[in-house]
Amino acid sequence: MFTIDTDLPLPISQAFALALAEEVKNIDSKAVTINFRDPDYSPQTGGFHPVEIRLEKGTDQWQLCYITDFCYVGHQGQWELVKELDFDFSCGVFQSISGLLVIEAATELYPIWEQNFLCYWQELEVFNVSTSTD
């Protein structure tokens, strides 16, 4: 079984790496995109933000390319799903409402985001999870 490379500029937890490895253990492809969707999430009622995670297979480990957390913005029927947080390991940048920053700028925020996401995914099981490969 391939593992997830955690030697990254953000503190990827072992729990997160193991959960991702379990999700992609039977994937026979060079790349996979995992989508996490709360079927009840809407601009009117809220819910758990959609998340997309992209991994590419290296020689002996999966490499995290990006983790993107989306949210709705807009008013009165003019809603749009946009990136709220984007941890882009491939490009070494972090994007948020603050703008585009070096990824290390998310060192304090990332563990909080990850802990919450793992709780929603693994404990509360609020997401429908789907994968697509290239």
Score class of each variant (00 low, 15 high):
residue 1 M to K: 10
residue 2 F to M: 14
residue 2 F to V: 07
residue 3 T to N: 10
residue 4 I to N: 02
residue 6 T to F: 00
residue 6 T to M: 12
residue 7 D to N: 13
residue 15 A to E: 15
residue 16 F to K: 04
residue 17 A to I: 03
residue 19 A to M: 06
residue 22 E to C: 02
residue 23 E to R: 14
residue 23 E to K: 10
residue 24 V to N: 06
residue 28 D to V: 09
residue 33 T to N: 09
residue 34 I to N: 03
residue 35 N to C: 11
residue 37 R to D: 13
residue 38 D to P: 03
residue 41 Y to D: 02
residue 43 P to L: 06
residue 44 Q to V: 08
residue 45 T to Y: 08
residue 45 T to V: 10
residue 49 H to Q: 14
residue 54 R to E: 11
residue 55 L to G: 06
residue 56 E to N: 12
residue 60 D to F: 10
residue 61 Q to Y: 07
residue 63 Q to P: 03
residue 65 C to D: 12
residue 65 C to L: 12
residue 68 T to P: 02
residue 68 T to R: 14
residue 68 T to G: 04
residue 69 D to P: 03
residue 71 C to S: 08
residue 78 Q to E: 14
residue 81 L to C: 03
residue 85 L to A: 05
residue 87 F to K: 01
residue 87 F to I: 04
residue 91 C to T: 15
residue 93 V to R: 10
residue 97 I to D: 09
residue 100 L to H: 12
residue 100 L to V: 12
residue 103 I to Y: 03
residue 107 T to R: 11
residue 107 T to D: 13
residue 108 E to R: 08
residue 108 E to A: 13
residue 111 P to Q: 08
residue 111 P to G: 08
residue 113 W to D: 02
residue 115 Q to M: 12
residue 116 N to K: 10
residue 117 F to R: 00
residue 117 F to H: 00
residue 117 F to L: 03
residue 118 L to S: 01
residue 118 L to D: 01
residue 124 L to S: 08
residue 124 L to C: 09
residue 125 E to I: 00
residue 128 N to Y: 15
residue 128 N to S: 15
residue 130 S to L: 02
residue 132 S to E: 13
residue 134 D to V: 12
